[in-house]
Computed example of a mutant assay.
Amino acid sequence: MDSDTQGLLEPVGGGWLIGYARVSTKGQILDRQIAALEAAGCSRIFADKKSGKNAEREELWKALDYAREGDTLVVPALDRLGRSIQDLISIVAGLRKRGIGFTSLHESLDTTTPGGRLVFHVFAALAEFIRELIVQGTHEGIAAARARGERIGRPPAMTEEQIMHARALLANPEATVTSIAKLLGISRTTLYKYVPELKAGHRPSIPALPAPQLEAPRR
């Protein structure tokens, strides 16, 4: 967007216009964004030159902390503020609770106006609708899988065969829990979980095999 097409914005309640710009790749430059924010009348501009991950948006958090009631946060475009529509809605909702306005120059969106607030209400409703569809689809998929007899969730750390093998090895008093766990490729904690009698200090015992029955000689 050309900076000369932007008129000076009017902050809410006589507050300050605070600009925020961000580039997420090395090939992008901030000059055009900053020029647009300056042309809009921003008295203070914060700029991030990193990716959009929460942990790497230090300047955004500084801008949000700097803003006070009556101020307006201004961005060149919506995608410069949020990584997703949910992220965007969360940030703008937080600003509104603090009495801070929000303006996006490219989309001509201003939450200090009735039309701008309506647009964001629609965004929030769509985001909630999509979330509910995802949750509903997940629940239906789980129910269908259970109806087919499929196991839901993470597979067990030990199979029945491994448990039987572990019990057989533990019946040998010379075998240690650590050595058996290493042999089976599991942790000691997992072994204690699936062979609970070990917690009480008892080792499994293998029942003696019944003596073979000899057939009586035929007469």
Rank of each mutant, 00 (worst) to 15 (best):
residue 102 F to W: 08
residue 52 G to D: 07
residue 124 A to N: 04
residue 148 R to L: 11
residue 38 E to L: 14
residue 166 A to V: 04
residue 71 D to W: 03
residue 71 D to F: 04
residue 148 R to I: 03
residue 86 Q to Y: 08
residue 163 I to G: 00
residue 110 D to N: 10
residue 44 R to C: 14
residue 44 R to W: 13
residue 110 D to H: 01
residue 157 A to G: 04
residue 79 D to G: 10
residue 92 V to I: 15
residue 49 K to Y: 04
residue 145 A to K: 02
residue 32 R to I: 05
residue 162 Q to E: 11
residue 109 L to C: 06
residue 83 R to V: 10
residue 51 S to L: 07
residue 69 E to Q: 08
residue 197 E to F: 02
residue 111 T to W: 00
residue 49 K to R: 15
residue 127 A to T: 06
residue 93 A to Q: 13
residue 41 G to T: 04
residue 47 A to H: 10
residue 139 H to N: 15
residue 155 P to S: 09
residue 5 T to E: 14
residue 177 V to D: 03
residue 26 K to C: 00
residue 148 R to H: 09
residue 19 G to E: 05
residue 7 G to S: 15
residue 22 R to Q: 11
residue 115 G to N: 15
residue 130 I to Y: 14
residue 122 V to N: 00
residue 9 L to M: 08
residue 135 V to Y: 03
residue 17 L to N: 00
residue 101 G to M: 13
residue 205 S to K: 15
residue 168 A to G: 04
residue 58 E to Q: 14
residue 6 Q to K: 05
residue 107 E to L: 09
residue 36 A to W: 03
residue 97 K to Q: 13
residue 129 F to Y: 09
residue 134 I to F: 10
residue 98 R to Q: 09
residue 21 A to V: 06
residue 110 D to I: 01
residue 71 D to Q: 02
residue 211 A to T: 15
residue 197 E to A: 01
residue 100 I to D: 04
residue 126 L to Y: 14
residue 108 S to Q: 13
residue 203 R to Y: 03
residue 128 E to R: 12
residue 159 T to L: 05
residue 123 F to K: 02
residue 131 R to H: 07
residue 149 G to A: 03
residue 176 T to A: 09
residue 73 L to T: 01
residue 77 A to C: 06
residue 80 R to L: 04
residue 213 Q to I: 15
residue 150 E to N: 11
residue 75 V to E: 01
residue 69 E to W: 00
residue 106 H to I: 06
residue 34 I to H: 00
residue 173 P to G: 07
residue 11 P to L: 04
residue 91 I to M: 12
residue 22 R to P: 09
residue 179 S to T: 07
residue 179 S to G: 11
residue 107 E to D: 08
residue 83 R to A: 11
residue 91 I to Y: 08
residue 181 A to M: 05
residue 34 I to F: 00
residue 101 G to V: 14
residue 211 A to K: 15
residue 217 P to R: 07
residue 157 A to V: 07
residue 180 I to D: 02
residue 22 R to S: 10
residue 162 Q to M: 11
residue 11 P to H: 01
residue 42 C to F: 09
residue 212 P to Q: 15
residue 69 E to V: 03
residue 8 L to C: 10
residue 107 E to C: 05
residue 201 G to C: 01
residue 115 G to I: 12
residue 144 A to L: 09
residue 114 P to R: 10
residue 9 L to E: 07
residue 81 L to S: 08
residue 77 A to P: 00
residue 192 Y to F: 13
residue 78 L to E: 13
residue 83 R to Q: 14
residue 72 T to A: 12
residue 115 G to F: 12
residue 104 S to I: 02
residue 207 P to R: 02
residue 189 T to R: 12
residue 136 Q to V: 05
residue 175 A to S: 13
residue 124 A to C: 04
residue 194 Y to C: 00
residue 94 G to V: 09
residue 127 A to G: 05
residue 155 P to C: 09
residue 98 R to M: 05
residue 214 L to D: 08
residue 15 G to D: 06
residue 215 E to M: 12
residue 53 K to Y: 01
residue 195 V to M: 00
residue 59 E to C: 13
residue 39 A to W: 07
residue 6 Q to H: 07
residue 54 N to T: 14
residue 73 L to H: 00
residue 77 A to V: 02
residue 94 G to R: 08
residue 62 K to G: 08
residue 55 A to G: 02
residue 138 T to A: 11
residue 89 I to M: 08
residue 174 E to F: 02
residue 80 R to G: 01
residue 19 G to D: 06
residue 200 A to E: 11
residue 113 T to S: 15
residue 102 F to P: 12
residue 58 E to C: 12
residue 160 E to W: 08
residue 207 P to F: 03
